[in-house]
């Protein structure tokens, strides 16, 4: 009996909370990236339900001419964009670029979310579907031009994992369909394998990298795969993304299939994205 009482006292000395058993909740991994973009491409992040994200994006001309055009800053191209979360899984976006006077619309849907706790999911997966429309006049007015010739369709699968507090990796196979191409021999469909990551440098800043490898024998000659490197700086409701890239377009058909510049030639463009979020409804 003494032995029994002794053992019961031992139990009482243990961690009381352990009596309740294991935590049976599932927790979603958040903040794999600071913004809905890594640099040019979409990231695995969505704007939350009822949140509007206003994006102001600039890309400058290449730095190769040096002081004469102030390292490209004289030649700016801009995109203004809006993103809105219809639910915590579905996000809509619109934008207008000065380049090609293009307008673009897209949705991003979360299929899987990385989670821990009771239900453990190692990856997050989202899909992006975008329509991009060039609105500049047709170069050849003699031929019969269709509205559909202005259209580009892009589909992207985002597979991401936040490995640690600071490091997140994303793979993003992307398919761009161009309704109209210059030559009959040009491909309408371009498949590109993208990879991006972010490494946090401090609580509020990170180093981001993004590369799209265009599968060989698809793109016209003298067009290259875009490589971008940048920094995210977050200050409360704003995220500033500053970067260098050989691409100067901000929509899929542009940066994936129309990048004539190369890092090796010093054709590097400075650019930034500014994102400001507003909570419109709760």
């Amino acid at each position: 009996m003494w032995l029994y009482l002794g053992s019961s006292m031992l139990i009482a000395q243990e961690d009381l909370l352990s009596l309740l058993g294991k935590d049976a909740n599932t927790y979603l991994t958040t903040a794999s990236f600071k913004s809905t973009r890594i640099i040019n491409s979409q990231s695995i992040e969505n704007t939350a339900k009822g949140v509007l994200d206003i994006k102001i994006q600039h890309r400058f001309a290449s730095i190769e001419n040096g002081v004469s055009d102030f390292f490209g800053l004289d030649g700016a191209s801009i995109r203004l964009g809006l993103e809105y979360g219809l639910s915590n899984r579905l996000m809509l976006g619109f934008g207008r670029s000065s380049l090609d006077k293009a307008i673009d619309g897209y949705f991003k849907y979360r299929i899987l979310r990385q989670s821990f706790g009771k239900k453990q999911m190692p990856l997050s997966i989202s899909i992006v579907s975008a329509i991009e429309i060039k609105t500049t006049p047709f170069s050849d007015t003699k031929r019969r031009n269709y509205f559909s010739s202005r259209m580009y369709y892009s589909y992207q699968l985002l597979v991401a994992r936040k490995f640690s507090d600071g490091f997140s990796l994303q793979l993003m196979p992307t398919w761009v369909h161009r309704n109209l191409v210059k030559l009959e021999s040009d491909h309408n469909d371009i498949v590109s394998l993208g990879v991006g990551f972010r490494q946090k440098l401090s609580k509020r800043s990170s180093l981001n990298l993004e590369y799209f490898y265009n599968l060989p024998n698809q793109l016209e000659a003298n067009l290259y795969s875009p490589l971008s490197i940048g920094f995210d700086i977050e200050t409360g409701g704003h995220v500033f993304q500053l970067h260098f890239s050989n691409a100067s377009a901000m929509i899929y058909k542009g940066f994936i299939t129309e990048t004539p510049d190369r890092w090796s030639k010093g054709q590097i463009h400075f650019g930034f994205n500014i994102s400001r979020v507003f909570t419109l409804s709760k």
Binding site: Y27, T30, A31, A48, K49, K203, T279
Partner: peptide, 21 residues
């Protein structure tokens, strides 16, 4: 005992910052 990321905020961004920063 409470899990920090089980705190639900009015604004999603606040929640992100609470946990991250």
């Amino acid at each position: 005992a409470a899990l920090n990321n089980a705190f639900v905020f009015e604004k999603a961004l606040m929640q992100d910052h609470f946990n991250e920063n």
